[in-house]
Design a binder for these strands. Structure first.
Lengths: 201, 201
DNA sequence: GCTTTACGAGAACGATCGTTCGTTCTAGTA
DNA sequence: TACTAGAACGAACGATCGTTCTCGTAAAGC
């Protein structure tokens, strides 16, 4: 019972790469099988349905994000350093495209399924809620550590930071603007500075 | 030569509504014909190909954006009032969903086609360039009028404002967060204030 | 009112979609 | 070496995709 699991993992790896280009809905079993030199039915047998394939592909992408962006940030001390690391990893994730030649799958899937009810959307919403919650937690820790002003609204700041990331991904992908990363760093730095605690405390 | 143009307009109107839900690629001629009580071939005859239909649908959405968001802003005096009006109209466009029950088609299409070369993507990029250029122009006018600090980088500010709009659309659509509009207004106001010209001039 | 034009319906095309089925091949166990 | 469970194949399913024809009918121009 090992061979099956290994090919399954290979399939999902390729599925993430392909779906990041053509979208989770555009991901077809036939084209995926062709890219892997597998038969359509052989590939399909690993998943009960197309929706299962989509769900597992999305979960794999989420796990990839977790291990590349989020987990490394936990190595940094809580507060501003950790928050900065998180954002920095995130921008790198967007900028370089190791396996994700088609941009961040989670972001494109979010736009794709924001109006399509179903299990995929539910998973997407759950992941997004978790992510935003984690950002807010990092901000709260930064406030506790005295790195950010106590009057800072964590959800508001999280919203604005997320907006910067979205704009970066958009400009980088659609407009092919390589300066967007620098723009984002600029914006983040200024935003953080404007939430610094009052000097004499 | 009138009947044809009228039904063509009706088709495109419905196409915008449908595509904003299922995406420009997910837009199928069969389902569109069914929603309009037309035959598949009858509908198809109005366009030479599916790509033409997609292009015209996107153009219609762009025109709609222009007349609902951009043009009304020109009635306001140049400078900060015009820029504020533009952003306010934009947030309303995102918040209310008159015909666009599936969110802004241009935004979802941007995520959909950011990695798919072709005429649709080209049109999308051209529209986005025009839009961002217009924002920058509005910002420049605000600087000239003395409403914003002379050291303001128009492209940087445009980038950040666009990010806020993206986050608003995202939170409103995927997370169904109605507070996102208020968050955006907050963020915009603070961002503008931080670019105010030095007091004593 | 008649003729001409264009508009839409209907049937059919090859291709591809997700899915099912029975069969063959491969690896591991006794 | 014989047996067996799992993995992949190849063919086929009905449905739908975009697209191409022909043909009747409605609207437009005189």
């Amino acid at each position: 019972m090992q061979k099956g699991d290994r090919t399954r993992a290979l399939i999902l790896e390729e599925a993430v790469a392909l779906a990041s280009q053509v979208g989770l809905e555009g991901l077809s079993i036939g084209s995926l099988a062709e890219r892997l030199d597998l038969s359509k039915s052989g590939l399909f047998a690993h998943f009960g349905s197309k929706e299962d394939l989509q769900l597992l592909t999305l979960k794999r992408a989420q796990a990839l994000f977790q291990e590349r962006v989020f987990s490394p940030a936990l190595d940094h001390p809580r507060g501003l350093p950790r928050l900065r690391s998180l954002l920095s990893n995130w921008l790198s994730w967007i900028g370089e495209n190791d396996d994700l030649s088609g941009g961040c799958l989670v972001l494109s899937a979010s736009a794709e399924y924001d109006d399509r009810p179903g299990a995929v959307r539910d998973l997407l919403v759950a992941g997004q809620r978790e992510l935003r919650g984690a950002i807010v937690k990092a901000i709260r820790l930064a406030i506790e550590e005295g790195h950010l002003a106590p009057r800072t609204d964590p959800w508001q700041l999280g919203f604005e930071l997320y907006g910067i990331v979205l704009a970066t991904h958009h400009d980088r992908r659609l407009l092919e603007d390589t300066r967007s990363i620098a723009r984002a760093q600029d914006a983040i730095e200024r935003l953080i500075r404007s939430h610094r605690p009052p000097a004499g405390t």
